[in-house]
Amino acid sequence: RYHALVASLTIFILAIFIGFELITKVPPTLHTPLMSGSNAISGISIVGALIAASAGDSWLAAFIGLIAVILATINVVGGYLVTHRMLEMFKPKR
């Protein structure tokens, strides 16, 4: 069981390093869209929400999971859509 934990921690630390290296020079016009776009990515907790909502072993857990599904879906769908709208604004100027 602790092998799995060490594997997860390894993945976590490596992903943190990639995150630090990924964005270095960002022009100011992209600050807000990038923030909005990465905000949509943090809606990945929707995966956990879907798993919790399908829990067969606890009625209460499934209900709380359903609330999480709704909240995370708003984050994901709204987040990507609003980011797309922001980026569309820049198009004609380029």
């Binding site: 997860s8 990639i18 905000n39 990515i41 990945i44 956990g48 798993i51």
Partner: peptide, 26 residues
């Protein structure tokens, strides 16, 4: 990312920590 550790799901851990780290840089 922390939730990823709870449900033992790598895609949560990876994308969560990507956002966590790149968010600090941003």
């Amino acid at each position: 990312a922390a939730t990823g550790f709870v449900i033992e799901n790598n895609v949560l851990i990876i994308s969560g920590s990507l956002v966590g780290a790149s968010g600090i840089v941003l």
